[in-house]
Design a protein around this nucleic acid. Structure first.
Lengths: 168, 168
DNA sequence: CATTTATAATTAGGTGCCATACTATTAGTT
DNA sequence: AACTAATAGTATGGCACCTAATTATAAATG
């Protein structure tokens, strides 16, 4: 969940904007729709992943390792790339290691560091589930033309831009 | 967090699509961008809400009550409209009630039911924070024309449509 | 009218993420 | 060389959400 299931109607938005003059109805409408769709999208993915006993975080960690399956990566950069805190990555790796999907390797030079690598079991698990996963994504987007996809990308980029200011 | 911080480049997508033929690079790219923007958007909102000691769930509950501030709503329908489970709503209401923002009222006819109503304190708290909240949303979307907003809405709707099939 | 079924709210227990604080090691400073 | 600061990984405790089970009440049924 990260946004209302019951999005406000145009009429409701108009009503509320009478009480709060700062409210821009069409801005809120679009913003809410974006959060709603994102929420549903994530839930759908999580449902698929849960069948494989994976959370979004654990899956994304595997995906990131699978970009360069033969190179080992240390937890810090992994955390950064996945978008979680280092402490969270420790937990994700604990789970993945317990399932035998990744292994922790000592680092030669710097004894603070460790390296994470996909195991053969981990690679196989990904190779088994990714075809289905990717084809679902292709299916999901099939009604959007190449043009529409690019259009959507550039609209999202404008919002990303707006988000920079937002942080103050 | 709900998607990679480090989105795949077009080149990475091409490389991976050689290993997994079901992967449609532009579909994944757009899908990933949507999740990324949604994630950042939610995080930004949560940061604002945390200053007022509110979570997204608690805030949405207040917002929903504030649509019709004088009518009481029971937890079940509230949960449904906000998009959480009934059990979760119990927890959200516990928190809001402890802060004095809402109150639980007994139902006359059906003794299983209770009604939830915003308190005066709750209404005041909302009236104090919503102007800032709404003006930030307006600010966030100000670089999108009315046309672009509608365009974005309709693209999102197409994805919503695709999500229906996704659930099987 | 007694029994089953359905509904409302809650409790109990689990997962995933976070922030904070700690330990070990390395790098930088004087 | 000794001291301070920075970095890597982790342990701990907390919050928000979930599922499943529980309690109380009401409605439906034989």
């Amino acid at each position: 969940m990260f946004y209302l299931k019951d999005l406000p109607t145009d009429q409701t938005l108009e009503e509320i904007s009478k009480r709060y003059h700062e409210l821009d109805p069409s801005a809120l409408k679009t913003c809410a729709a974006l959060l709603r769709t994102g929420s549903d999208l994530l839930t759908a993915f999580e449902n698929i992943l849960s069948r494989h006993d994976l959370s979004q975080g654990r899956f994304l960690t595997l995906i990131m390792l699978n970009r360069t399956p033969d190179k080992a990566i240390n937890p810090s950069t992994l955390a950064q790339k996945v978008g979680v805190k280092r402490a969270t990555m420790t937990g994700l790796l604990d789970g993945l290691e317990k399932k035998g999907l990744v292994k922790r390797l000592a680092h030669q030079e710097d004894r603070r560091k460790i390296s994470i690598q996909l195991t053969v079991v981990g690679k196989d698990a990904l190779d088994k589930m990714l075809p289905d996963y990717y084809s679902r994504i292709a299916q999901l987007m099939k009604d959007l033309s190449e043009n529409e996809r690019q259009n959507l990308n550039s609209l999202l980029k404008k919002i990303d831009q707006g988000l920079i200011l937002f942080k103050e």
